[in-house]
Each structure stands twice: as structure tokens, then as C-alpha cells.
Design a protein around this nucleic acid. Sequence first.
DNA 1: CATGAATGAGAATTCATTCAT
DNA 2: AATGAATGAATTCTCATTCAT
Lengths: 210, 210, 210, 210
Amino acid sequence: MAARKSKEPKQRIMDVAISLFAQKGYAGVGVREIASEADVNIAMISYYFEGKLGILKAIIEEFFCHYSEILSDIDDQSKSPEECVRLMVQRLVNFVKKNTELAMVTYNELPLDSPEIAEMKAEKIKELIQRISGLIRRFGLDPSDTFHIAVIGPSLIASILTNFRFRPVLKRIIKVEFNDAYHERLIETISALFLFGVHGIAAQKRKRRK
Amino acid sequence: MAARKSKEPKQRIMDVAISLFAQKGYAGVGVREIASEADVNIAMISYYFEGKLGILKAIIEEFFCHYSEILSDIDDQSKSPEECVRLMVQRLVNFVKKNTELAMVTYNELPLDSPEIAEMKAEKIKELIQRISGLIRRFGLDPSDTFHIAVIGPSLIASILTNFRFRPVLKRIIKVEFNDAYHERLIETISALFLFGVHGIAAQKRKRRK
Amino acid sequence: MAARKSKEPKQRIMDVAISLFAQKGYAGVGVREIASEADVNIAMISYYFEGKLGILKAIIEEFFCHYSEILSDIDDQSKSPEECVRLMVQRLVNFVKKNTELAMVTYNELPLDSPEIAEMKAEKIKELIQRISGLIRRFGLDPSDTFHIAVIGPSLIASILTNFRFRPVLKRIIKVEFNDAYHERLIETISALFLFGVHGIAAQKRKRRK
Amino acid sequence: MAARKSKEPKQRIMDVAISLFAQKGYAGVGVREIASEADVNIAMISYYFEGKLGILKAIIEEFFCHYSEILSDIDDQSKSPEECVRLMVQRLVNFVKKNTELAMVTYNELPLDSPEIAEMKAEKIKELIQRISGLIRRFGLDPSDTFHIAVIGPSLIASILTNFRFRPVLKRIIKVEFNDAYHERLIETISALFLFGVHGIAAQKRKRRK
DNA sequence: CATGAATGAGAATTCATTCAT
DNA sequence: AATGAATGAATTCTCATTCAT
């Protein structure tokens, strides 16, 4: 069961923690379990991460670090907004597909109220919003209208993440295989859903103004 | 701080547990905290709910009980599918608005891997899917294609719930007031998003078949 | 080795803690040692005293509670100041003789810098000083001169307590038996030392004024 | 915060340890705290002092080394016993004034029951007693009567040390400034207290013999 | 000399649960 | 129906020390 000793201890702790947090939630996992699974002395957790919360901080930071990279050149003016959205969805899905547990931990523990990481979360999300607001404007929606920011962006992200989040539960109920074809189709569908959706809303708005 | 002794002890425990679980997560709350907040002896929790997990079970059951009621007559043939979706979104939003914490606990702890409640969750979600599959068919999509079930339904629900879930975080970042007008607009927007989206996808499909 | 189960658990914890703290110092004793020695479950310490520091607080409080009683009618105007001092020394010695460990713990840990008990200590000592200041005045010394308060009072108390404090060390070096006769003589000697001393200082002062 | 790197590492460790032990007690301080404060690698403590206890041993040894020097020529037959006592008190006060923390650590941890340093302590104190016994004899008291050794000597020392020991507590309660004038007066008062006291006791004894 | 990673034992505290009353 | 004391395991974290480099 124990993780292979191929990697550095610090990385092993991270990997194991991501996996366990994803399965049982941050509060549901003990440092002893992490340490034994990572084949590392318990004291090493405090040594490297200054406590259990430190691991979560590192995890969230890693997520947002990758995430930022993903969104770095989304608002490319040389592409049509439609292409941008499709590209973003594609990248997001591929990223979460490769780092499912990392994404799940971050998504699940984001509402956790810990003063120590509240600041960090707020900062990261602020940055995220700024990234997306440019795109929203290009669809003819008012980015200064905080409502759209608060609704459409999170909806899109949640739509993708939820899809991964409930897979263990879904597997028990319906017959699906989460292979490459599935993900291709997922990208297509989510993109289409939001593109048609946002276009529709924008058109509706223009009509009403008249 | 302690809950008023007006209600029965069992209900007080439930109320307090819902509130605390919503704030800190199931694993982050202790029975002693619940007991003291509910102004109830600790032993009463085992007495009424047979342990901490029993409270969570009761909470999830209560959620799905209400939830089922909400969706009871969604697939009403006398209404247009558009009206059905709009009604469903409206009812969902209003329900979550009134029972935010109950919904949050259920949504947050749903991926939790506890064998004791896994069965229950599967059963509840199965029922939920059946409710929605009729509606999906009426939009021209194949309900036997499990893909749509696995993607569109959860996306819709997640879009709504996520909106509530991240309010504490959002409040820190952007200026929004979650009043009645906000919720009216939320219903409109989510409905529009999915109606335009699903219509678009269905149209796309028809075009491709040709 | 374990304490007899004759008394209540809470009292057993106190008794054992006093004994162990006196031997090894507060920081040198663990709650597990206390619990096992008192034949009590470890959790009971938090249950009864809300943590290790709580035991120390209780100990110090008990000491000062008894101590106050001891000094209650020291400043008796019907007695000569000499009689008062002699009585005080007698009572103090007898008290410390009976509650050596309690006194040692309090005396040893008094300089401990713990914000939680600093207030309590200050309050207790303030009361103690007020008790003694009346007596000092009757010896012809100015009680508003904080110097005497800060020097003579503590010296007297320290003289008594130190005598008990270093007994284990002294026993190894010189041949003494700490029996009743010893304590009688101790009372006499300490009383004489301070009475002659204070009288001498007061006389010196009067002489200088001239 | 870290100690200046001007001195040798070993001395830095000593200095920091003395300061920290004086504040929090031997058992209340960790080697890591000492190491980081002294800006020294943790392993260096074992290297130089063979463990934490080794530091304490070194501290106590340093104290007694200085202390012996202080008392070296106290029993000078060319001076009157009164002058000797006065000189001793003066030297002691000045020494403790300059090395308060060193003295406090030694005084506080002296009753600590550690077999490894018990021997050393006994030896040091034996020497100390011999130094003082000559003086006691010159006051007309019987130095073979271990009682006086066990009571008067320790009382004198404790009177001085206690005065320094409770300064942090005293400062909170009464208004005193521990400046040079204060210490001059302290020397005078303590000397007078004991001189008058011992003379009185000796006179009393002579009277009784008659 | 000096380092920093690593160890295993032990620290205090809190956990959910149970039991006699 | 309800209490509060009691339990033993588990919690996170820190301890002094050592070792290979």
C-alpha cells in the first residue's frame, strides 16, 4: 500500500495527502495516515509543511499555480470568443483529467473556513475572475455587472468539476466509461452548453433593450 | 448562543448539526460541540441518532425527502418542456434559498466515502435521475444515452448549488447582495443558460444527422 | 504505587499532581504520568481541570486559600507586634510543614510566566501584601515606603520556604532530622532573626533622624 | 532577535540558554528554541554540551565558580564579623545584579531531582557551607550545631535571591524602580536585618545559659 | 566543524461512545 | 427520558537526539 520510495519524501507526502484528502476530505484524514501511507516519519509533516494545514495550503497553491497557467492566454484577441471558450473548456477538462484529485481537494475544501488560508483563497479567486471578465465582455455582457461574474463563471467551472466529483457515485448507478472519447464529448457538450447559453442570454438582452 | 429550548431535543440536534456541518464540514464538527450548542446532553446524540453518522444520514434523508417533493410534478406533459425547466430551476433555487445549509451539507458530503450511507445515496440519486430523464427526452435528446444524464443534469444542479456554496468567498471579493431580486435573476439566468444550451445542442445534433 | 481509590478522582488528580510537580517541577511532569499515578483516565484531566495548566491554577488557588486563612487575624491590635510576628511565623511553619508539597509547587512555579495565571498571582500577592503592611507599620517603619514591602516581607517568607525547599539537598550533606523539635526551634529562630532585625533597623532609623 | 554572531557558538548557546531557562524554566525550554535563538545548528548542542542537561550542568558550574570567587576571602580575620557579613551581602547583591539570570536558573533548578547533577550540587553546597561556618562561629554561635547552618545561611541567601526572583511579579503590583540606589539600600537592609538578627539570637543564648 | 534531514518516543488534547444511575 | 462521569483510542504536534554528508 505504501507509496514507492522513488520520489523525495516531501513530494510523497504531497501525493499521498492529495489522494487521501480527495477520498475522505481534509478533516477526515489524519497526519498519521498520511505519514504511514507515504512511508515517512510523522514528524516530517511538521518539518516540511509546518502542520497539517500547511499541506492543504501547499495543495491549493499548487492547484492555482497550474490553473493560472491554464488560463494564461485564454483571452487571446486573435481568436474568436467562441474559440476561446472552447479552448478554455478543453484545457480545463484535460487538466482536471490529469490532476483529478488535486482539483477535487481544492474544490471541496475551498469553502472551508480557516482564517489562515482565507486570504490566499480570496486572492487566487480574484485573479481568476479578472482572467475571465475579459472574455465575458466579448460576449456582449457587461463585466462590471458583478452578477454575471458571480453566476456564469462559477457555473461553468462547477459544471466541469462536478462531473468529475460525482464519478464514484455515478459509476454505481449508470454504465459509463470515463475514457478519452468520453472526455472529448464532455468538452464538446460543456462548450456547446455554455456557448449557446451565453449567446442566447446576450441576444435576449439586446432584444429587450429594443 | 445555545439553541432555544422551544423545540424538541431531537430537532434541536438536527438544526444545530446542519448549521455546523455546513460551516465546518461533517468531519470538522464534534458531537460535543453539537450537544452543547443544542443544549442537550452528549449521550442524547447516540440515543436519538445512534452516533454521529446517524445525524448525517438523517440530514441527507431530509434533504432528499424535500427534494423529491420539489421535483414531484416536474415532468408535467401539459406544460412545455421549457416551462418545466424554468419551473424546476425556480423551485430548486427557492428551496435551496430557504434551506441553504441543509443543501450545502448534502452537496458537500455526498462524495464522502462511507459504506454505511453509500447505498442510500445511490438510491436517492437513481430516483433523481429518473425524474429528470423524461424531461431530457422531450428536448430531443436520447435518454438512454447515459452521457447526457451524467453531464447535463448534474451540471444544472451544480450550477445552482455552487452559486450558494461560494457566497461566503464571493462576498469577500465582489460586491453583491443576495436579495430577492438577485434570486429572481438567478432563476432567469440559469434557466436561460440551460434552455438555450440544450436547445442548441439538440439542434446541432439534428443538423449532424442530416 | 498508584494512589488509593479511596478519594474522588478529582481529588486524586490534585494530590498526585501536587506531589509530582513538587518533585520535578510543573513542566517536568506529563499529564500521562499524573493520570496513571492517580489511577485515572487521561481524559479526566481535561474533563475536570480543562488541561494541565488548570491543575496548576487549582493548586495555586488552594495554596492561597489556605494561606489567607492563616494570615486572617495576624494584625490583631490586642497583641503586641512581637507576638503577632511570632504567631505568624508559627502558623506559616506549621502550615508549610503540613502542606509542604503544596507550598513548594506554589513557591517554585510562582515566577512562571504564563499569561493565563499571571493575573491571579498578582491579585493573590496584592492581598498578601495588604495583610502584612499593617504589621510593618506597627514596627515603626513606613508602610507607604514600597521598599520595605518589597524586601522584608518576601525575605521572611522566603526564609521559611527555602528551609523546606532545600531539605532534600541538605539531607545529603549534613545530619539533621526534621522532627517536631526542629520545627519548634525553626519558629523561634526565624522569629528572633526578624524581630531583632526589624527592631534594629527601626532603631537605626530613629537614630539617624536625630 | 537572534544572538549576535560576534561570540563563539558555544558561548552563544550558553548565553541564550541562561536567558531562556531563567524565563521559562529548564523543562519549559526546548533545544530547538535555544539553537534558533543562538543562531546555531541544533546538532551543535549535543556536540558542545552532550545534550540539554549538559547545558544546565555548565550553567550551574559557572554559577558556583563565580560564587566561590565571591566568597573567597569573606572569612577575613582582619575584619570584624560585621564587616565580613556586610561585605558578603554587598558582593552577593552585586554579583546577582550583574548575573541575575545565571543566578536565577541555578537557584530555580537546584531542587530539580536529576541523579546526574545531584552529586555536583551536593559538592558545591558543601563547599559553600564550609565557607560560611567560620563566620557563624565568630558571632558566638556553635558551628557544629548543624541547625544554624541549615537555617541562617540559606535564609540569608534566599532573602537576597528571592528579592530578584519576584521582581517581575512585584513590578506589576507595587511601584518600585530597581536602580543603583535601590540596590545600595537592599545591601544595607539585608545586612542590618541579619546582623541585628544574629546578634540578638546570640545575646539571647548567652542570657539563657546564665 | 557544521549541516539539515530523519527518527521514534512522547507531549497535551479531543474524539465518539458507553454505562450506571 | 435524561444525566454526567468515565473510557480508550486517536488527534496533531514537539521533543531531544543522531546520522550521513
